[in-house]
Design a binder for these strands. Structure first.
Lengths: 159, 159
DNA sequence: CTCTAATTGAAAATGAATTTCAATTTCCTT
DNA sequence: AAGGAAATTGAAATTCATTTTCAATTAGAG
């Protein structure tokens, strides 16, 4: 059970790496050791990381990867559709793995800073409706809920 | 008709200036010529301005107001509840007048950059619902719709 | 293997926003 | 109305995330 879930995850990661490879070839760009390392760590982390976060993670094992290259690689992942950027209240750009065409929004805890993704079809419908009222053609949206997450609520006496 | 609408607006602005005055006194801060000028221009503009925008507007008439002071005054307005900050896709901080306790969200045109406010009670209910599903206590939210506004859609042949 | 174009890391540059600081101004107290 | 403490100001310096520059290195097509 656990076993199969792990390998399922690995399979997906592998597939994403393939997709990146195609993207690079298509654009006449090169596959490098640095890119492989960064992308690996990014998919392994599987959370909302800043370039700095990821750089620190990688630096523990590989002293020779530059922060600049991390920035550049995350940008590349975004362009290839394998990651998305989000900016929350702290104004840092965070990157998150993106599988195919999913759209999700975020719950952000004001206490611990944890970020949870959610998906809700009602938002999509609401979006259409509101846009319609203004004669607006909707392309994309962004919704963020700030508050206190389950864990913080339970731990805190004075929330 | 038009006459009364204008003076209604002026009355509201006046009231806001009074509120700022109270806030300043309460906090032991001072009413200065610069603050008056900046606040005036801000309420008169009545759109989503960056500190820079407002600075340029003011500089046309008053060469002696510093950008720093504009930043500081906008921050003050935010603290006193008379303005709110929003950050959209271009990552600039914009300020907008806030009357009492209204919450609104934004439609942002990807072509002309215009920003339209909207209010929708369904979003509030949806927020509660989603938060509930995650055991999350909602405090505030942010919703942005990006797309093409009515005017841009009409003008464009190829949108 | 060679050659060209892409990539790299370090350092410099950028740009919005904030902080510092000496000079000025406000406004409370007499 | 005058004095003086504390707040405010504008300019310049600083911060901090991110981007750009550049000389040296590397990938990979031919």
């Amino acid at each position: 059970m656990r076993e199969s879930r792990v390998s399922e995850r690995d399979r997906k990661i592998k597939e994403k790496k393939e997709r990146l490879k195609s993207f690079l070839k298509e654009k006449g760009l090169k596959s490098t050791r640095q890119r492989a390392l960064i992308v690996n760590e990014f998919f392994k982390a599987d959370e909302h990381v800043t370039a700095e976060d990821l750089y620190k993670k990688i630096s523990r094992k590989h002293r020779d990867i530059g922060l600049t290259t991390v920035y550049r690689t995350l940008k590349l992942l975004t362009q290839s559709g394998l990651a998305t950027e989000s900016v929350f209240a702290d104004n840092l750009t965070r990157y998150e793995p993106l599988s195919a065409d999913d759209h999700h929004d975020h719950l952000i805890c004001l206490h611990c800073g944890s970020i949870t993704e959610f998906e809700n079809p009602k938002i999509e419908r609401l979006k259409e409706r509101i846009a319609g009222e203004f004669g607006f053609i909707p392309v994309s949206h962004k919704m963020e809920l700030y508050g206190y997450c389950n864990a913080c609520r339970e731990n805190a006496q004075s929330l």
